[in-house]
Computed example of a mutant assay.
Amino acid sequence: MIKRFFKFIFKTLLWFVVLSIGLVFLYKWVPVPATPLMMIRYFEKQEAEKSKGWKHDWVPIDAISKNLQLAVICSEDQNFLNHNGFDIKAIEKAYKHNKKGKKLRGASTISQQTAKNVFLWPQRSWFRKGMEAYFTFLIEWMWSKERIVEVYLNSIEMGRGIYGAEAASRYWFKKSANNLSQLEATAIAAILPNPRVYKANPASNYIQVRKAWIVKQMNYFGPLDYANNEENAIKN
């Protein structure tokens, strides 16, 4: 009986690994049609709102303004191009900050957020964090940094029922994601900590302050060059 139980557990784990690797490999090339969060948000809606569905228009990264790509990296994970999915220094800082009893600070990278958004659910638990680490490792292993940003910007929540850069651009600024100006891009990036509460347009005083900060970070960061950075990473 015990032997059969462990055999079942082994087969289950083996199938999970095979299927998860296969899915991550598939999403290296194929657009992500929907995420668990989209489904959860849909069923959370009142019956009268469900007919509206959600707005989600996948576009290739070439159709997303570099302004938005850079604004999100500078606001969410400035070390994104240099780490392997986990920013150890940011984790240490967050741990020390939270240990003092201050307002909780997170240290999730764009890679971790992508893994959570695409493959997992938003609940906080050690099990989910472990799964998040597993999928973060997989996407960092199989995808390029540019692909991670492409999936991230096409999948994250950017307003109530608004998912991805294209839908957000059209909702907030009535234009395609490819045509976002720097200030428009920073407005969208500024609401990401809580896109169901904050508005990119018109922006509150708090969002205006965040926009100004993000612009400064973008100027410090300089041009966004995925290829050059990945070549340097391989050499090092």
Rank of each mutant, 00 (worst) to 15 (best):
I191Q: 06
K55C: 07
P122C: 13
R105T: 05
K89C: 03
I21V: 15
F8L: 15
F5L: 15
T12I: 12
P33Q: 11
V18Q: 12
Q112M: 15
G101W: 07
I2N: 06
R128C: 04
A227G: 10
K116S: 07
L81T: 04
V149G: 04
H83N: 11
Y134Q: 03
I207K: 00
I64V: 13
A48E: 14
L81Y: 10
K45H: 01
Q113H: 02
R4V: 07
F221H: 12
N154I: 09
K129W: 02
I21D: 02
F80N: 02
R105K: 14
G101N: 13
T136V: 04
S181C: 00
M39P: 01
E146T: 02
N98P: 09
G101S: 14
E166D: 02
Y95C: 11
K211L: 09
A168H: 00
T114V: 08
A107C: 12
A190D: 00
T136C: 00
S204G: 02
W126Y: 13
A227Y: 04
L224R: 09
V72M: 02
F119R: 13
F80T: 03
P223C: 03
M38E: 07
V215T: 06
Y171D: 11
I40M: 11
G53L: 14
A212L: 14
G85A: 10
N82Q: 13
F127C: 06
D225F: 05
F43S: 12
V151Y: 01
N228W: 05
Y220F: 15
W58D: 05
L153C: 01
S65E: 01
I234C: 09
K55H: 04
Q69T: 03
F8T: 13
E184V: 02
K7L: 14
A168V: 00
I64A: 02
S176M: 12
Q217S: 03
D87P: 04
A168D: 07
A71C: 11
Y163H: 06
P60L: 14
G106V: 01
F127T: 13
T114M: 07
V209Y: 02
V32T: 04
Y163M: 09
A165F: 05
I110P: 02
L104S: 12
L183G: 10
Y171P: 06
T186M: 10
A185M: 06
K216I: 01
A115Q: 10
P36C: 08
M1L: 11
A115R: 09
Y134P: 08
K50T: 12
A167M: 05
D225A: 11
K175C: 12
L180N: 00
N229F: 05
I162Y: 04
R124G: 11
A107H: 00
F137G: 08
L138K: 00
I214T: 00
L23V: 14
W126P: 00
M38P: 06
R41K: 15
N201T: 01
K211Q: 15
R4D: 13
Y198K: 07
K145A: 09
R160V: 12
M218Y: 03
D77G: 05
G22L: 14
S111V: 01
L153H: 08
D62R: 08
F119Y: 14
L224T: 03
Y171S: 10
Q208Y: 09
A63D: 04
F25V: 15
G106N: 02
P31M: 01
D87G: 11
T186S: 06
R147Y: 03
S75A: 15
R105M: 13
F43W: 15
M142L: 15
F8C: 15
K55W: 08
A107D: 02
I64W: 11
V30N: 04
